[in-house]
């Protein structure tokens, strides 16, 4: 069963780029991604560019509105995701807890709607 692991954190809450702490964070990501791949759980995943680069689109009465910025202005922002194929929620929660950002941000785990 597929789960989407959404990685949220507040701007500036994580380690700063090019510091040893940032290196550790990256190592953590590599290790957990490797573990997920080894166990045939990993289906995909990426980090996202900062919310300043976000564009929101909505169509109302046939007219497309294009808006600068994310869907919701919240303190914690979506910064990346994983798509995992897990046997149950406990396995998905296990990987969520292994995501290094979980230590200062929040990981939302959502089952994928299976057709």
């Amino acid at each position: 069963m597929q789960y989407l692991l959404l990685i949220y954190s507040a701007e500036g809450s994580g380690p700063v780029y090019e510091t040893p702490e940032f290196g550790k964070l990256m190592e953590g990501y590599m290790a957990m991604t490797e573990e997920a791949k080894q166990n045939n759980v990993f289906e995909g995943g990426n980090a996202l560019q900062a919310v300043e680069t976000a564009t929101s689109v909505r169509v109302r009465n046939g007219k497309t509105e294009t808006i600068d910025g994310p869907f919701a202005e919240t303190k914690e922002q979506l910064g990346g995701y994983y798509l995992m194929n897990c046997k149950d929620l406990d396995e998905a929660l296990y990987y969520a807890s292994k995501i290094p950002t979980a230590e200062f941000g929040t990981i939302e785990v959502r089952p994928v709607w299976e057709l």
Partner: peptide, 10 residues
């Protein structure tokens, strides 16, 4: 059901 919470002893 939808999130597939396991039916098992952890």
């Amino acid at each position: 059901k939808l999130a597939n919470i396991p039916y098992d002893i952890p």
